[in-house]
Design a protein around this nucleic acid. Structure first.
Length: 153
DNA sequence: GCCAACGTTGGC
DNA sequence: GCCAACGTTGGC
C-alpha cells in the first residue's frame, strides 16, 4: 500500500496543534461519524496528516502529523463518564475506532480555508465539497501543495 | 424502506 | 447567534 494522505480537524479550544506539539503524540478519539471512522481504519503507520483548526478565526491548516498507531477500539465509547460514550456499541464488536497521531511540524504560515478556496489546484479538496467530515482523505498533490503554501518544502 | 423531525458541524 | 448541509432516529 503506497503512503496515503489525510486531513483531520480539531477545534483548537478542544485540542490544538500546540497541544499536539506539547504531547508529542495523542490518541485521536471521539470520532462518531461512520465515514470518518472508515477513514481512520484505512490509515496506515507513517501516513501523512494535515492538521486543521476548525471553528477558529480563521479556520485552516496549521500543521502536520503522522499516523503513529493504526486503528484500534476507541475506549471512550465504553466509558459512561465520557461525552463520547455510546451505549449501543457492542464490546465484542466495537463500533468506533481511534488511531494515534504524532506531531511532525507546525506550518510557518497557516493555510487558511480562504487560501485553500482561492487556490485553483485545491478546488477538488473534500474540505470544500463536504466540509463537515472530520477525517478526510487528501491526495499527494493536495498535501504537498498545502505544505508548500504553509512555508515548508 | 420511507421520510419527518431532530441533532450536529462548522463557516460566517 | 444563525443557518446550510448534512447524519441519525424512530414511527409507520
Amino acid at each position: 500500500m503506497p503512503k496515503q494522505f489525510w486531513l483531520v480537524k480539531s477545534e483548537p479550544d478542544v485540542y490544538s496543534i500546540d497541544a499536539l506539539e506539547r504531547d508529542g503524540s495523542t490518541p485521536w478519539e471521539g470520532v462518531r461519524n461512520y465515514k470518518a471512522r472508515n477513514n481512520l481504519r484505512a490509515m496506515k503507520l507513517g501516513d501523512d496528516v494535515l492538521f486543521y483548526h476548525s471553528n477558529a478565526k480563521p479556520p485552516g491548516v496549521v500543521g502536520m502529523a503522522r499516523v503513529w498507531r493504526e486503528a484500534y477500539p476507541d475506549p471512550s465509547q465504553f466509558d459512561r463518564k465520557s461525552g463520547y460514550f455510546d451505549g449501543s456499541s457492542d464490546p465484542a464488536d466495537p463500533r468506533w475506532s481511534r488511531v494515534d497521531l504524532a506531531f511532525v511540524a507546525r506550518l510557518p504560515r497557516m493555510v487558511s480555508l480562504d487560501d485553500i478556496k482561492a487556490d485553483p489546484t485545491l478546488a477538488d479538496m473534500e474540505l470544500l465539497r463536504y466540509g463537515r467530515l472530520s477525517v478526510q482523505s487528501v491526495t499527494r498533490s493536495q498535501f504537498e501543495r498545502v505544505r508548500k503554501m504553509g512555508g515548508l518544502k
